[in-house]
Design a protein around this nucleic acid. Sequence first.
DNA 1: ATTTTTATTGAAAATCTTTTTCATTGTAAA
DNA 2: TTTACAATGAAAAAGATTTTCAATAAAAAT
Lengths: 141, 141
Amino acid sequence: MPAQTWLTALQENGYRLTASRRAVVETVAATHRALTPLEVFDLARESHPELGLVTVYRTLEKLEELHLIQRVHQPHGCQAFISASQGHQHLLLCRKCGQVIFFDGDNLDGLFERVIQDSGYTIQEHWLQLFGLCPACQTTP
Amino acid sequence: MPAQTWLTALQENGYRLTASRRAVVETVAATHRALTPLEVFDLARESHPELGLVTVYRTLEKLEELHLIQRVHQPHGCQAFISASQGHQHLLLCRKCGQVIFFDGDNLDGLFERVIQDSGYTIQEHWLQLFGLCPACQTTP
DNA sequence: ATTTTTATTGAAAATCTTTTTCATTGTAAA
DNA sequence: TTTACAATGAAAAAGATTTTCAATAAAAAT
């Protein structure tokens, strides 16, 4: 949502502010579902037709590096991105419309503890994603 | 591990038993880390040099369809597969050597319940993956 | 304001991965 | 055996992503 925040973040990290980047950022920030690079390209070109696909790839790369967006993994593919508003969050995706909502799962610690005990592994990172139907898509068949 | 079981499963589902399929199945069944199609190809060709990459793709597709293998999602890519021994399981991956172990997380139900309440979504499926270091890789820097 | 420096851009080409096509081969059923 | 047709591998096609490069534009220096 906060397109301006992202632009500022890019600038603060030594990246220049360009019309192309602005178009990409505004597109991703305004969309509440995961978008592939090609989808970003098509949407962003509506407001900035000169945009090149390469720039979309490069901008998404930087946004991911700054943790402003995160990759969404789905059975069909894993090249879609969505705004990663606040820190580490888990995803709940609607299988029909693609709408994504975030939630945090604080109570995973007990499980992790058990797995660490049993396996001898150290745990550095985790992914949790749920798939289902959003309220709207439950009613429309 | 049970290469023969997989071959039987393929046969029972109307697929023919060929030397190429055997080579792919044995390779995946014998490996305890996720393999990409290309890695399967290279490994399987050691014992069956006539194997074509296309057949690897096609065989992996069938094994996945029969739930004998499952896709492993990692930051670097999501085209790797690993044996899916028993039903739905969660993954714990070593970031250094790639070794994968499975665990089940029965106590996620409370979390799911809360998310269902809060979001209004129905939940059909979930993915949980942990990343860390296996005991061996913790000591070798 | 103007100039200078240099990151960024988009088009085209190159790379990689995956899928399709198709004539040939090999498996399983008759 | 013979027959039917699923499965194969090579080559081509299709897609996705990355690299190259000359031109451009943003920010810094003047």
